[in-house]
Amino acid sequence: MDTNLLFIFILAIIIGFEVISKVPSMLHTPLMSGTNAIHGIILFGGILVLADAATPLVQGLGFVAVVFGSANVFGGFMVTDRMLQMFRKKKQP
C-alpha cells in the first residue's frame, strides 16, 4: 500500500468538507448534481479495465462500465448546466 495515496485521500476528505461548508439551500440540488457528475470519473476506471480486457466476459462488462460511466459524466454535467441556466434567469426581474 502506498502511503502517499492515503495522504492524498485524507487531504481530499478535508478539502471536500471545506469547499462546500457554506452553501445556500437553493443550491443543494445543483451541487448534488454537479458532484454526481464528478464521480462519473469512474469512466476512467472503465476505460482502463476495458483497454486490457482479455476475455469476452471482461470485454462485455467493461463495455457496460464505460457506457454507464460515460452517461454519468456527460449527462451529469449537462443536466447540472441546464439546472443552473434556469437559476440565472431568476435574477432578471
Binding site: I8, I14, G16, F17, I42, F44
Partner: peptide
C-alpha cells in the same frame, strides 16, 4: 470510485471520488 482509484492506482479517481464522498456527506 475512490476505492477503485486505489485499486487501479489512478490519482485523479482517488481525488475526485473522495471529494464527492466527503462533500456529499456534508451536503
Amino acid at each position: 470510485v475512490a476505492a477503485d482509484g486505489f485499486v487501479i492506482d489512478n490519482l485523479a479517481m482517488i481525488v475526485a471520488g473522495t471529494l464527492v464522498g466527503s462533500s456529499g456527506t456534508l451536503l
